[in-house]
């Protein structure tokens, strides 16, 4: 399928007038295409530029040089307001802190906030809000106060708020980072459901490697540049490079590495899937016994 978002030789600094050396920019010449309907995970340690990359994609930040193309529309310099809102209606964004993105006190009012801004007629908003709340499984909380919800529930309301704008792509900017394991699971399930059932383009920014295992594609950002780019198994098998980028290694990959190095076991490298790893280990153990 065609690319939904394309970045071409993109450079970005928050303060380009004072940062003379382009080597000190936050993003340094990124070229990237995000295919329509794909699930892309962006990994990187703190300060690697991964969040800024997300902000470029829905024009919270505009490129210092280079271009962004969203759904066939190319933005190079300071765009006019209509273009910005058109693109933000297509590319929704869910942030990290659940408390800082809910605007109103009642759940359904908050979900309605986006479509209200877009000037959607009242009856249509009602339909969209009900559908969005049903998708994230928060229908029974429609009339509740947002302050009484748990972190995971707030984050699902935030997702519903973006869904009600009917975007084609949603960017999750570390949306699971502040949640407990239960809330994290619920939000990840919702994200995966949006991708598989609604065919939405998902860009998930995280530093939790486990969340990237099921993605179609993993991009590792390091020091403002794309460091690794490929399928999860391609990326996660490169133990040395991942450590170089300040990231860890999946537990199963690490275990296989240790078994090979320290016990001299003959095991295949680059295992990223827990189930597959377990199968290989169990068959290796059985063979060892016989």
């Amino acid at each position: 399928m065609a690319d939904f978002i394309t970045l071409k030789d993109l450079w970005f600094s928050y303060d380009p007038e004072n940062v003379k050396d382009r080597e000190n920019y936050i993003l340094k010449g990124i070229s990237l295409g995000i295919e329509e309907g794909s699930f892309v995970c962006v990994l990187g340690h703190n300060g690697s530029g991964k969040s800024t990359l997300a902000k470029i994609m829905n024009l919270v930040c505009t490129p210092t040089s280079g271009s962004v193309t969203v759904d066939g529309r190319t933005i190079t310099e300071e765009p006019d307001e209509d273009t910005v809102f058109e693109i933000r209606g297509k590319v929704g964004m869910v942030f990290q802190n659940p408390d800082n993105q809910l605007v109103t006190t009642i759940v359904e009012d908050d979900v309605a906030f986006g479509p209200e801004n877009l000037g959607v007629p009242s009856e249509e908003i009602r339909k969209r809000v009900d559908a969005a709340l049903a998708t994230v499984g928060m229908t029974e909380y429609a009339k509740h106060s947002t302050s009484m919800l748990s972190g995971g529930q707030k984050q699902r309301v935030a997702i519903a708020g973006v869904l009600a704008m009917q975007p084609r792509c949603i960017i999750f900017d570390e949306s699971t980072a502040m949640l407990d394991p239960q809330g994290r699971r619920a939000v990840m399930d919702t994200i995966e459901k949006l991708h598989s059932e609604k065919g939405m383009t998902i860009i998930h920014i995280t530093h939790n490697m486990d969340e990237a295992v099921n993605a179609d594609r993993v991009i590792v950002v390091n020091d403002g540049r794309i460091f690794l780019d490929g399928t999860p198994s391609e990326v996660f098998s490169q133990e040395k490079k991942l450590r170089e980028a300040g990231l860890g290694v999946l537990q199963v990959t690490e275990l296989f590495g240790m078994l090979t190095r320290e016990l001299g076991m003959k095991l295949p490298g680059g295992i990223t899937d827990n189930r597959k790893g377990a199968e290989i280990l169990s068959s290796a153990l059985k063979n060892g016994k016989n």
């Binding site: 307001e81 942030f95 993105q101 309605a112 906030f113 708020g161």
Partner: peptide
């Protein structure tokens, strides 16, 4: 943070805005 989140949801003042419960 809230201002950024509101802008991402296309908030641009009262002009051209509709309401769910008119």
């Amino acid at each position: 943070d809230l201002a950024t989140a509101m802008e991402c949801r296309c908030y641009h003042g009262g002009e051209g805005r509709t309401k769910m419960n008119e």
